[in-house]
Design a protein around this nucleic acid. Structure first.
Lengths: 244, 244
DNA sequence: CGACTAGTTGAGCCGATTCAACCCCAGTGG
DNA sequence: CCACTGGGGTTGAATCGGCTCAACTAGTCG
């Protein structure tokens, strides 16, 4: 747990990825923010079945949401990057139906549930923005469901890599032509509904064909246009997101 | 297009499925409601790529949300039943990333986008409820993604049928021990990421084993406990939902 | 120096797919 | 009136994408 850095100095707000807020709004968010926490890679900081008394914004690092069956099979629903909000899914439930695990070391802004209610009451525009964030999350899950339900293994992998690359790039995580990519092949398999072995073989084959390289935790899209064609990647316009 | 019936007389509010609102709140909702529309079964009333200038609440009938790839493959994301809200996913986008099609004849309450903004501004508790609805939708998509990613064809079908049965039952659509079930085998296949042929064979086999019967548009769960075991159906508590 | 994690590769199998018929029934129009 | 058509459902045969099992490498940590 750290002393919170000032929200006005929030490094994320500097990028073009997020909609601008007034100083008053930013100060209000700062006011309901309880504190910041650091979470070690691999930690499950929200378990399936937990009650969600707190909500979070990812300040830095990667995480993922997942669900599981009682025999241990599990599925990653979505990856979480800086700026993503966590907890709307269970704020009114006594039991969360998904877990959230840190993929890398993580810094989170922590909001108590009551603060969120204050937000709706006193800053309706921010309330609407929270709904927008929630709706955006759902669109990502929709897109993943379309992949897992209808795309081949090859197409799924191309889709996931492009999509994560774009998302990471927009929040400033990409280098000049590549990206720190913390997923293991197991994570990719868990997100795409594939077995680890088949993920490995497909990944290899695509790299041999010159679509991308993925080694030592770095991802580089060698031929993004061909990947987009392969994945039937939709050219959605990038828009500024709310950042709470 | 009909004259709206009064929201105070809304047949859905009579059931125990929805959280109670004050008369003032109900009148406010009535005030922003533009009108009601009837939609014929099979009509796509929200296309992929449309701008969502209007939002809807399903008053009666079934519908589904879906997405598709450019070569025609498509995936149903979720089914929509009375009380479900449509449109949060695209209210701020110029282009919806999913389509919505009427499965049966449908009656919809239509809200203009600006009315929703008024709702946040003047009735923050209702705004919070809209976020709840959005979060709930996302949980359903999460559950579907878990099915499609990790359950076998047999398990997926059991899961879908139980889940839809419970959802329909809670809004009063079930008879004493069965249910009007408007999905064709093609819809089931599209929702579960399966082929039509395999869906048919699996459906037949499960019925022969005595799990359920599905014929002439009626679904009856003969052995719901065995189905729940087969599907690893989670016993989430039923809670009242908001109804906007 | 194990022990463990992440990745790699081959062999064989099986669940789900595609292709191809076929049935029943409700419209619909000549 | 009845032939025709199209939607929904059923079934068998052949194929294949992705699965499981199994073995092995390389790097890292205590």
């Amino acid at each position: 747990m750290n002393l919170p850095i000032s929200c006005r100095q929030c490094p994320l707000r500097g990028t073009h990825a997020f909609s601008p807020y007034s100083d008053e709004e930013i100060d209000f968010i700062q006011g309901i923010l309880a504190h910041q926490v650091n979470v070690k890679a691999g930690t499950i900081f929200l378990h399936e079945g937990d009650d969600g008394k707190q909500l979070y914004t990812v300040l830095s690092g990667w995480a993922f949401r997942y669900g599981s069956l009682s025999d241990g099979r599990h599925q990653i629903f979505n990856f979480l990057l800086p700026g993503d909000f966590i907890g709307l899914q269970h704020q009114l439930e006594e039991a969360s139906q998904h877990g959230v695990e840190a993929l890398t070391d993580l810094t989170l802004c922590v909001f108590p549930r009551d603060g969120v209610w204050d937000l709706y009451r006193t800053h309706p525009a921010l309330g609407l923005d929270l709904t927008r964030l929630c709706a955006h999350e759902e669109r990502i899950v929709d897109a993943n469901l379309l992949s897992v339900g209808r795309r081949s293994a090859t197409e799924r992998i191309a889709m996931l890599l492009i999509h994560l690359y774009k998302r990471a790039e927009r929040v400033g995580l990409a280098g000049s032509d590549d990206l720190d990519f913390p997923l293991t092949q197991q994570h990719i398999a868990d997100a795409l509904g594939l077995s680890l072995v088949h993920t490995n073989k497909t990944l290899k084959r695509l790299q041999k064909s010159g679509f991308f390289t993925l080694a030592e935790g770095r991802l580089k899209l060698v031929n993004p246009a061909a990947m987009a064609r392969l994945a039937d990647y939709p050219a959605w316009p990038l828009r500024a997101h709310p950042l709470i």
